[in-house]
């Protein structure tokens, strides 16, 4: 690990100022991806801006028809939070399936989404619920947020402060865990929301995406049978030593069916 400046701003505004002032600075939330990268000398930022001391961007609250989760809320907090369990149990369950206990007690929803790992669970969780990212500058719909492999709509200097989840009628997450990393080989979140059925897939492609053909079929007939024959195109999916693209395409349908069956 190279030396770096270490900052613990007390507000999002201060964090943004530090970010603007240091071209090679990096924001750190839980550090679950960033710290191993530094230790392996794969990255050497000049400064780390740790968001841990900012009080008002962690925790869960309800705001009308939305559940608001602060960016610095850990996976364990989301998993255990009574409000999340009551209003979006599918999301609480998803958070409890991330990584291992150590990761869940350090890693955060904001950090995970900003990193946009193609196999992370929260991209499916946010996309599947039609959530909105609130940053220090604007609001970004999850539909517009995940652009590609480790690529998001966040601009330089932009910091996620929270995620707003419309409370769904029902949702459920199904995951095939990678035996080593605990990431999703494939993860599928199916939600019945007030604006329709959403099916979001992570792990399978370069970035989380929605399985629109399944959404349309389920909108007409919310049943396992309705999506029986619907598959996503394997050509667009990841093909690696752990899972072929054909396997991933197959698993997307299997997990989607299982999610629907859980209704």
């Amino acid at each position: 690990m190279e030396n770096f400046g270490y900052h613990t701003p007390a507000s999002v505004a201060d964090a943004a100022k530090l970010l603007d002032a240091n071209e090679d600075a990096k924001l750190m939330s839980g550090g679950m991806t960033l710290l191993p990268t530094l230790k392996q000398r794969l990255a050497a930022p000049s400064d780390l801006i740790d968001l841990a001391k900012i009080p008002d961007i962690k925790g869960v609250c309800r705001d009308g028809d939305e559940l608001v989760i602060g960016a610095m809320t850990t996976h364990a907090e989301v998993h255990e939070n009574a409000l999340v369990r009551e209003l979006i149990p599918g999301l609480a369950s998803l958070a409890g399936q991330i990584g291992d206990p150590a990761v869940r007690h350090r890693g955060t929803i904001g950090g995970s989404c900003a990193n946009a790992d193609p196999a992370a669970d929260y991209p499916a969780g946010t996309l599947g619920h039609g959530a909105t990212f609130v940053t220090n500058k604007r609001k970004i719909a999850a539909d517009d947020f995940f652009l590609g492999l480790f690529e998001t709509a966040l601009e330089p200097g932009e910091i996620i402060v929270g995620v707003r989840f419309p409370i769904p009628v029902w949702s459920h997450y199904q995951k095939l865990r990678h035996p080593a990393s605990g990431y999703a080989v494939v993860g599928v979140l199916v939600a019945q929301t007030k604006s329709g059925v959403r099916v979001a897939v992570t792990g399978a492609g370069p970035s989380a995406f929605r399985a629109t053909a399944m959404e349309e079929a389920l909108a007409k007939d919310f049943s396992v049978k309705a999506i029986e024959g619907i598959t996503v195109d394997a050509d667009d999916l990841n093909n690696d030593i752990h899972a072929s693209a054909a396997y991933r395409a197959h698993v997307v349908t299997v997990l989607a069916k299982r999610a629907v069956a859980a209704r």
Binding site: P179, A180, S181, H242
Partner: peptide
């Protein structure tokens, strides 16, 4: 290619 615990599957209690 499998040079870390992110890719190399050590057996865990869950297995």
């Amino acid at each position: 290619v499998t040079g870390s615990f992110m890719d190399y599957g050590m057996p865990r209690a869950e297995h």
